[in-house]
Amino acid sequence: MVSGLSSERQPGKLRYTDENMSSRIRVFDSSVGSKLLIGLTGLALFLYLITHIAGNALIFLGADTFNTYAHTLTSNPLIPIIELGLVLVFLTHIFKTVQMFVRNKAARPVAYAVKKPAGTPSRKTLASSTMIVSGLWLLLFVVLHVQAFKYGLEYEAASGVRDLYRIEMETFASPLTVAFYVVSMLLVGSHLWHGASSALQSLGLDHPSWTPRILAAGKIAAVAIAGGFVVIALWAHVTGGAR
């Protein structure tokens, strides 16, 4: 049906045609396929963050509960596979978003002298305009964060498991570290402020009455998740984990 779809339709060559459509890579190279992949991986990372904040909140229940939780989690044989999956999801999200950012920039080589937001009903916010900045910052953050906690100090608690509670308290004893974490978590909130609901829109979820609720829920989740992490960091700093 689409035969004849080739370079005669100037300018530029088509990235894929009906004949080689079976190639999934080419599908995901298209502007809509890229959105699907970014939305899917973004949603997975969002769901991961929900489990992360839920687990971290156990720190309020004391060192023993927290350390036991951490040990149970990390000693699960499925964890390395899940971690690998998470890394792949994370790298895919970064690769596709950076690639899309570069292509999107190329789509407007001459900038406007004057450009203003169009206003209602646009969803454009400071958060949506700075996704690449918040995203790249979080890449740096995640590297440092994983280094500090996953591959960090190895204290042993009295029960014999790794004393993650102590590592956390010592890490957040430094005001500089707390500041870095708080800034990073505000950027997580900013990223999710647009990203959480945007992921669902990218995947094609849309409904006259549900879309406004999804948009609101995304913002509530952004504040809750970022706020939760900030509270934990500040709490750890202030109390020093008065054990």
Binding site: L5, G12, V32, S34
Partner: peptide, 16 residues
């Protein structure tokens, strides 16, 4: 495919 070939960008769901 044609829109991509013509050099239009993708969508960030901002709704401008």
């Amino acid at each position: 495919a044609q829109a991509d070939a013509d050099g239009f960008g993708s969508c960030s769901n901002e709704g401008e």
